[in-house]
Design a protein around this nucleic acid. Structure first.
Lengths: 246, 246
DNA sequence: AATCGCGGTTGACATGGATCAAGCCAACAC
DNA sequence: GTGTTGGCTTGATCCATGTCAACCGCGATT
């Protein structure tokens, strides 16, 4: 790829240029439900595409906010820091998901977004998104749904943190990842974790040792096979059953 | 008041009718930042006002969604239920705050909203809010801020649940209530809790006994005076200090 | 005034997960 | 190869919070 010269500039441009219209995530991402010509208007807006290397920040808490970001490929975590150094991972985001919605409220980001693998994002200038969504009803409505979905997701995490035991939290976590990989066309039963035990623990309100021990227990009980970051789910129903017991 | 007859119909109507333009919460609530004539257009939309008695549901999880609600007066909790009966209180809402944003995502409410005291709400039909906010930029932007603020709040709760100890959670909870009462013109140092120890516990991921014991400890240490639901904060800085230790 | 009942407090004890510590494994550098 | 490093696993012990149980106190009802 790096040595190929463009044969026809239109073609190469249309491939290289960010374009929702030919993005295979468009049914998961912001463009959901838009007509062809609406899509093209969104294309104009989603101009810049950026690579973020593993470990780099997409944005940091405190930075001023002016765009939201759609993940084109890769994997991110968001976290909030307390003055005393404690931190809480607030989410893991994958392709097709939006980052940065927290920044709208104060015009400043309130959390950090960090790439857990080399990633690519589309920046969507927020004020332009607002103007466009004043014109395109479908876009407006879908954007509201996405924000609302984030609120609902957060409620789920609260439930997890507030009422579930370590086993249940981890089972819920694995099932959630599995389901999200599935809807992106990957295996539901086999995947690589992009985050460390510590990051999982932070997300789930557990220490890394507990995460590790619980994985081991799941393995002993035949629910999963773990080998470092490689996970195979052997018994989905077993995991599901772990959640509603008690 | 109840015996007075209207002298001029316009006057009595303007008092009785729901109207953002003369609501003293307008600087906290959705109308924030609107001009006089924009306010009047919002008035048309916020037509119905409803009383909810203590203990009654404003809406239930699963019901179909078509409006969001602004709290005119009173106090609510929202909670989510798991099949096995466990529940998690996801928030406490007071005058000027919005309820129902979770329902946008699936067109169905995903939690229950229950009045903790006799309350009054304004129903805002959501599709009409969307059309109006396509016309009024300020309204659109403010609504986005409100949704985003909810996401940020949820992150705070995750931090609480994920990384803080019982003392810290409860201190944070009291300080948060105090601050919200203050911005509504009530005393920052003295207030009545509208919720039970069990509801506080559910919100904070603690059992009611722990909540009760921690209140008692705060009292022994001179941070607060508790008597059932009546709270007086004696030492704000003491409470703040409790949070960042460790 | 007596009774009832719900919510709150307090105590004694149990336990899930944290903490501390050692060792292991895999990737990478040299 | 050997060493180094970061992430993971496992064991022993500890402790914060949960659990169970008794009792209290206040408001509502009669």
């Amino acid at each position: 790829m790096t040595h190929s010269r463009p044969l026809k500039s239109e073609i190469s441009l249309s491939v290289i240029k960010t374009a929702c219209s030919n993005c295979n995530l468009r049914e998961l991402c912001l463009p959901f439900g838009l007509s062809i010509d609406e899509l093209e208007r969104l294309d104009d807006l989603v101009s810049s595409r950026r690579r973020i290397k593993r470990g780099d920040y997409l944005y940091r808490a405190g930075e001023s906010f002016d765009a939201i970001y759609a993940i084109r490929s890769g994997f991110f975590k968001t976290d909030v820091l307390l003055e005393d150094g404690r931190d809480q991972v607030t989410g893991f985001q994958m392709a097709g998901e939006l980052l940065g919605l927290d920044g709208i409220s104060t015009e400043h980001h309130t959390c950090n977004a960090i790439a857990l693998e080399d990633s690519e994002i589309c920046a969507i200038p927020f004020s332009r998104l607002e103007s466009l969504s004043r014109e395109i009803h479908t876009l407006q409505h879908h954007f509201h749904k996405v924000m609302s979905r984030e609120i609902v997701r957060d409620h789920g995490v609260m439930m997890l943190l507030g009422t579930m035991r370590a086993e249940e939290r981890l089972a819920a976590f694995l099932l959630n990842l599995s389901q999200r990989f599935t809807s992106r066309g990957f295996s539901h039963a086999e995947f690589y974790l992009r985050m460390t035990r510590e990051e999982i623990g932070s997300y789930l309100g557990l220490k890394l040792e507990t995460v590790s021990r619980t994985f081991s227990r799941f393995q002993e009980e035949g629910h999963i096979a773990v080998q470092q970051k490689h996970i195979r789910i052997l018994n989905v129903n077993g995991l599901k059953a772990l959640m509603n017991q008690r």
